[in-house]
């Protein structure tokens, strides 16, 4: 049976309930929380600050360091705390997704640290993490060209859906599930990150990117509102 109706009653182009909050960690230079339904990510930004050991310093531009971490109680079965192959990959991906908008030339010899913690996971954690990190960087007063907004698009059997959750990710009937995480720059709408697990045809991928871009516009409004509310 084809996937004609989402199990939780959402429309195909509808995300889960989103919430964003800025300035939640007092001692960080910038911090934010972003949630997609049950997926909650918090990001904290420290810096620009001097980078040690000194041989890692770059006198031409600053360095962006991201660290993604899932807290052991964030999923049903306890996961081992600390870095894993998966979390290291996502840290690197987040770094690449954000580094194209952060103006690192303004901060030579320094480092900007971004720590992303997943408090609760129900798929799309990297997207929630990137969304939180983008607004946390903005709040830290770091000069950025624009914001980054991220969303996951799924191909469940033959239908494209926005913001995949765990149940949909594990769908096995028909063609199965394909999870495509993607990030867009807010103003120019350029892609800054795209990841694909599973099988998809070229024209379907094009369609998925189009759907993702539209979904990101809604997410951007949530991010923008969180920042503006914080300023007042």
């Amino acid at each position: 049976m084809a996937y004609t109706k989402r199990y939780d009653g959402r429309k195909f182009d509808e995300t889960r309930k989103m919430e964003a909050k800025v300035g939640i960690i007092k001692n960080a230079n910038g911090s934010a929380m972003f949630r997609f339904g049950d997926t909650i990510a918090i990001a904290s930004v420290y810096g620009p600050r001097p980078l040690h050991p000194q041989h890692l310093q770059n006198p031409q531009k600053g360095i962006l360091r991201c660290n993604y971490d899932m807290i052991s109680f964030s999923v049903g079965e306890r996961i081992r705390p600390g870095p894993s192959r998966r979390s290291q990959e996502i840290s690197k991906i987040t770094e690449w997704a954000l580094s194209s908008v952060v103006d690192l030339d303004a901060y030579p010899n320094t480092v900007v640290d971004v720590h992303i913690e997943i408090l609760q996971a129900n798929a799309s954690t990297r997207c929630a993490g990137i969304n939180a990190a983008a607004i946390a960087l903005a709040q830290a007063g770091i000069s950025m060209k624009e914001l980054v907004t991220s969303v996951s698009i799924g191909k469940i059997d033959k239908t494209l859906v926005v913001d995949v959750d765990k149940t949909e990710e594990d769908y096995e009937e028909g063609e199965g599930a394909t999870d495509i995480a993607m990030s867009f720059k807010s103003a120019s709408g350029e892609l800054s990150h795209l990841q694909l697990d599973g099988k998809i045809k070229e024209d379907e991928l094009r369609e998925a990117i189009k759907v993702g871009r539209d979904a990101c516009k809604k997410i951007y409004e949530v991010q923008k509102k969180a920042l503006k509310d914080m300023g007042e």
Binding site: N29, D103, G231
Partner: peptide
Amino acid sequence: IVANKFGLVDISGRLIKLIPLSGV
């Protein structure tokens, strides 16, 4: 004229400035 940072917009005459709210 596009913002490069997060801050308050200050328009004095023709000059547009951003007053940052936070940051080091």
